[in-house]
């Protein structure tokens, strides 16, 4: 029949009401051009100013000397530092322990991330390269108090060759040797000291049982 319209196929008729979704469905299987943030994180620029980190010397001692120059430089007054004296008195004799080479260390270190503007002036001010910035940026939280990061949160994790302070400096070396690169890893004596302290700590409660 000449006037016979070409009838659509069975499937075409079947899917006609939802044909509009074709674009949608076909797009679902295409390569995505948008940022897939939570699933796939696009790397930041290498020098992106993210969360801070307090670095350590290769033997695990902290680089921070508690000088407060970062706090001084901070335009937003976001940093609080309080120094204290390193103490080489043995801990069993009431000493407070050694946390950094030299005389002074940062006893209190806080950064208020609800004031910090990530300008990096603190990094420039740091005389010992103790404070640097990472590329980490996922900082949102649901209360103000938790966004004040304390020293424990900011300190870099221990890497291989490092042991957890407090422990003495590398034997025979001075503070300046740390900055001249003479220290590469914790020595056996430092390891022994830390182990002894942790043994003391773990043994004490059991002593009570005996």
């Amino acid at each position: 029949m000449a006037d016979e319209q070409k009838s659509p196929g069975f499937f075409a008729e079947l899917f006609a009401p939802i044909a509009g979704f074709g674009v949608t469905f076909s797009t679902m299987f295409r390569k995505v051009v948008t940022e897939e943030y939570p699933e796939e994180k696009r790397p930041t620029a290498r020098r992106f100013h993210g969360r801070h980190q307090l670095n350590r010397h290769p033997d695990g001692l902290e680089k921070c000397v508690g000088c407060e120059l970062c706090a001084w430089a901070c335009p937003a007054d976001a940093i609080l530092v309080e120094g204290a004296t390193n103490d080489d008195t043995p801990i069993e004799d009431g000493g407070a322990g050694r946390f950094s080479p030299g005389e002074r260390y940062g006893r209190v270190y806080q950064i208020n991330y609800l004031r910090c503007i990530f300008c990096g002036l603190c990094i420039e001010a740091c005389p010992t390269r103790a404070l640097t910035m990472t590329n980490f940026y996922e900082l949102a939280d649901n209360n103000r108090a938790d966004l004040i990061f304390t020293k424990e949160q900011l300190l870099a994790p221990l890497q291989s060759g490092m042991v957890q302070p407090p422990h003495p400096m590398v034997e025979g070396l001075e503070e300046r040797d740390y900055y001249l690169g003479a220290v590469t890893a914790a020595t056996d004596a430092q390891r022994a000291h830390v182990e002894e302290q942790s043994m003391r700590h773990t043994q004490e409660p059991t002593e009570e049982v005996h």
Binding site: T44, E138, L139
Partner: peptide
């Protein structure tokens, strides 16, 4: 702090926060 005026559910640091940080806040 805007929490002096309205109750805040998520605080997002940054000056300004990059878009991913806002997305992170939204996910939180």
């Amino acid at each position: 702090g805007v929490d002096h005026i309205v109750p805040v559910d998520i605080y997002l640091p940054g000056c300004p926060p990059r878009p991913e940080m806002l997305l992170n806040a939204i996910i939180e």
